[in-house]
Simulated assay, not measured.
Amino acid sequence: MRSHREGKPAAARVVQRCLGLSLLTLCLATLGVSEAFAHAVAEGDKGYIQEITGVHLIPFVYLGAKHMVTGYDHLLFLAGVIFFLYRLKDIGIYVSLFALGHSTTMLLGVYFNVGINSFLIDAIIGLSVVYKALDNLGAYQRWFGFQPNTKAATLIFGLFHGFGLSTKILEYKIAPDGLLQNLLAFNVGVEIGQLLALAGILIAMGFWRRTDGFRRHAYTANVAMMAAGFVLVGYQLTGYFVS
């Protein structure tokens, strides 16, 4: 009969493999993206947005939450941001900076009709994933001898993430009647979705960090994240030049 000590490493390996598969699945979903861009809205949701008028708070909260929990670019960036953060205080600061940037440009971009080419903005969002993966790998200090301000970068890339969504919403010509209330409700949904996604990522990361292989496989995980970001950039730039 196996002892408790013998069984524990085996259980740890199982958890480690499951977490590795989860990250790989997320990266493959990014690599295998087709016409559904990072900020695209499902066809059913698109039709709903185009047809309704007036204030619809609950539906827009739902749409905002759905966008966040299915937005693989957001999830990859968030995973990169908290990858080496252990204290809840630090996690709260960085996630709040990202939320501030994302919310500001999403609301102002739609309300004041400020649109950016969706291919270019999504390419920049792909670069945000590349940036964070390289930051986690310590590349900037090794290559250039300096460390970028990670808080400022999180806020700035949050602004671009928000522009990505506002640009897509503008393409669907949301009705001006009830626009501000619906946008605020959508933003509340985005924050709810972000908290749900963040909770899932933190739980998974918590289990992974307890395994012996976390430090050993952290490098590989961030290289995979960086590769996914480069694929996003290349895909969007290709779309820009051929469209």
Rank of each mutant, 00 (worst) to 15 (best):
I124A: 15
Y62S: 11
G80F: 01
R142W: 11
L63E: 00
I125R: 04
G71L: 04
G71Q: 02
L107A: 09
L76H: 02
I93Q: 12
G71N: 05
A123K: 01
K132Q: 15
F112N: 07
P59A: 03
L120T: 08
R87L: 05
L57K: 05
V69M: 06
R142M: 13
S96D: 10
K151L: 13
Q147E: 15
L134A: 14
N113W: 11
L76D: 04
I58D: 09
L137V: 04
Y62I: 15
I82F: 01
L120Y: 03
V129S: 07
K66P: 02
L63V: 04
L134D: 02
L107Y: 09
D135P: 06
V114M: 13
V129T: 13
V130T: 11
G126P: 06
I91W: 02
P148A: 05
G145L: 08
V129F: 04
I124S: 11
V130L: 08
F83G: 00
A133K: 00
A133C: 14
W143T: 11
L127C: 14
L63Y: 00
I82T: 04
L108N: 05
G54S: 08
S118G: 09
T70Q: 09
A152Q: 08
I91A: 01
T104V: 14
F98S: 07
I82Q: 04
L137H: 03
L134S: 12
L57W: 13
I121Y: 02
E51F: 06
N136C: 12
P59S: 02
L76W: 01
Q141P: 07
Y111D: 09
L120F: 05
A139V: 15
Y131Q: 07
G64C: 05
A123Y: 01
M106P: 08
A152T: 09
G109K: 00
K89A: 11
V81F: 02
Y111N: 13
I91K: 00
L127E: 00
G71M: 01
V114H: 07
S118Q: 11
Y131W: 13
A139L: 13
F146W: 11
I116C: 05
G54F: 05
F84I: 00
F112Y: 15
I125T: 05
S96E: 09
F84D: 12
V95S: 09
G64E: 04
S103H: 06
N149H: 10
Y111M: 13
G138Y: 03
I58G: 09
S118R: 08
G71D: 11
D122V: 05
F146E: 03
V114S: 07
Y111K: 12
I82R: 01
L108C: 12
L137S: 10
D122L: 07
F144R: 08
F77V: 04
A133P: 09
G115Q: 14
E51N: 11
T104F: 15
M106F: 15
G92W: 08
M106T: 15
R87V: 03
G115S: 15
F77M: 06
T104P: 07
F83D: 02
L97Y: 10
R142L: 14
Q141D: 14
L75H: 03
N136W: 08
I125W: 01
S103E: 08
T150W: 12
G54P: 09
A79Q: 10
F60D: 01
G64W: 00
I52Q: 10
Q147H: 14
N117I: 03
F60N: 06
E51R: 12
S118M: 11
